[in-house]
Design a protein around this nucleic acid. Sequence first.
DNA 1: CACCGTCTTGACGGTTCCTTGACGGCGGGC
DNA 2: GCCCGCCGTCAAGGAACCGTCAAGACGGTG
Lengths: 226, 226
Amino acid sequence: MSKVLVVDDEPALARALAINLRAHGWEVVTAADGRSALDAAATERPDVVVLDLGLPDLDGTEVIAGLRGWSSVPIVVLSARQHGEDKVDALDLGADDYVTKPFAMNELMARLRAAVRRGQVAAPEEAVVTVGSLEIDLARKRVAREGVDVRLTPTEWAFLELLARNLGRLVTREQILREVWGPAYEHETHYLRVYAAQLRRKLEDDPAHPRHLITSAGLGYTLEAG
Amino acid sequence: MSKVLVVDDEPALARALAINLRAHGWEVVTAADGRSALDAAATERPDVVVLDLGLPDLDGTEVIAGLRGWSSVPIVVLSARQHGEDKVDALDLGADDYVTKPFAMNELMARLRAAVRRGQVAAPEEAVVTVGSLEIDLARKRVAREGVDVRLTPTEWAFLELLARNLGRLVTREQILREVWGPAYEHETHYLRVYAAQLRRKLEDDPAHPRHLITSAGLGYTLEAG
DNA sequence: CACCGTCTTGACGGTTCCTTGACGGCGGGC
DNA sequence: GCCCGCCGTCAAGGAACCGTCAAGACGGTG
């Protein structure tokens, strides 16, 4: 769970933010002015800071500068001002993102997630899905079974990749056909059978009794996690 | 083409909205009160909802809360009230954006587009409905009873999904038949009995005395929350 | 042009699922 | 008590779907 520090002097807005963020799984700490914001940032070590400009004591830019003196925590600035002038200021000083009021809660949430993601330096995005003895490397577009590479055709790979990106989730026939063959093929279910069989022959220990690539008759296919 | 659900009890405004939206390429569904809004959202699966506060039956906030129980569809609230009080309420409950009347059609349109865009980027959003020892995962299309997966046929799943999306609310026979079998089957009530029985056999501890899938004779079925 | 890997298409047998009918239980109205 | 409507149960037949094999079509490459 990520921790967010909300810095805002309007109690109503601060409360609304806190409630929404908590509902979405964030741990929330609040501060109502610039000085306590700096204190809270030092003691709580949040993963990201939401900073409303126009605080009673310090100018928002001072808060950013103060934080940047010792921390590289991502900062998302919140502002009522419409024009770009202080946007440039804030970004210059080291803010990471900028949202003008009124804003949509989802947008803020998305920007926070993005900010945290960017903030995590150690994120080379190791996109490898492991399923039993299968290793599916989404970045390199490779599959290995018990350590040895398996050669897949482009269509086989597209099929498998789609299932792997939805690991453990049922992917409907229509979705597979749309994604792999294109929107016009939405009803060509024959392809599914041919390619499911082909993947099983290459990837399953016992293709006749698949343990990974599971069929749900009339619905679609699932790449089973366990 | 994106689909929008317009919830407004003033016919004139609802019509004006529908016409304008359709002219801009939206697919439009309308509802005039809170209850039918929830029904329509469950059956139509809009990409975004425009919700006018001040409905005859339910408070707008109740509608938001009801929707948020199972859906993460973006909601844009429409309100005549000028001051911020219920704005905060609406956002607290999970609305995504807020437009005060009178508004420019262009502005609403832009906010809808933005809401849809954000909705698509947003997280996969765990949508799991828990009923007793049942876990119904709407995103993965899976049901587990006491932790173990239960295999459902496509029709069984469609039936259960509809009830789960209307958790605790009675779903009429007509609505189920229309949704699961199609508009032409609105009077084939035999199907309901067969499939209700089948679901109970798979999901209930004692199929003869169901505690979750409840019949209301002559009316329809309810998936009981407790 | 011939070769090769890949994609498409067809046919067939086995399985799952849907549909349909028949029957019994339950409860309300008369 | 009897009738009637509605619900729940079971089972059978047929339709839809799946897995499999293999032959042809297609598109690059040498």
